[in-house]
């Protein structure tokens, strides 16, 4: 089962490697990982997608807590949350397909952010499933390059539980 963990960390040098070292050293897996500063520059927020049964997730959560630099771990998969991913796609846009690419991007509420004679760079944000869908639809037209962010997530309603 996939889980999305939101981890607040003291923003110290080497802190990311403490987290990734924990995962590799104990054989837990990381599917994606996203880190950035929070409003408080001394604190970073790391959003991490991992998988495992309940025991594994419990160990991961406890082990993360045990790191001296970790302030808080929330398994946001547990509750109601909004998740977003972003993708930048360089898709071929020849005379025959230019219009179709625009239509597709429009359906996915994406944007064209760069234009050249034979390709567009488009930007799409959304859930993991939506990103997968847009990629699948653009594939036959010709994707030249793709860059994806990891997933970020936030609980709905009030603040962090």
């Amino acid at each position: 089962m996939k889980h999305t963990l939101s981890v607040l960390l003291r923003n110290q040098p080497g802190v990311l490697s403490r987290v990734t070292g924990l995962f590799s050293g104990r054989g837990f897996n990381i599917e994606s990982l996203c880190v950035a500063e929070t409003l408080d520059p001394k604190v970073s927020c790391l959003t991490l997608i991992t998988s495992g049964d309940n025991n594994v997730i419990e160990q991961i959560t406890k082990q993360l807590h045990k790191l001296i630099d970790v302030l808080k771990v929330v398994d946001i998969g547990d509750g109601d949350f909004v998740e977003r991913e972003m993708v930048l796609i360089r898709v071929s846009a020849e005379a025959a397909t230019r219009a179709e690419v625009l239509r597709i991007i429009d359906i996915f509420r994406g944007k064209v952010v760069d234009v050249s004679p034979k390709s567009y760079v488009v930007e799409v944000t959304g859930s993991h499933a939506k990103i997968e869908a847009v990629i699948n639809i653009l594939k036959p037209i010709g994707i030249k390059e793709i860059v994806r962010t990891g997933k970020i997530a936030i609980a709905r309603g009030g603040a962090h539980k």
Binding site: G14, S17, G25
Partner: peptide, 16 residues
């Protein structure tokens, strides 16, 4: 040494 001992210390520090 901070990198080397990260997995075998409770915690470690580089004072810079």
């Amino acid at each position: 040494i901070v990198g080397i001992t990260r997995p075998c210390t409770k915690h470690n520090y580089l004072v810079n």
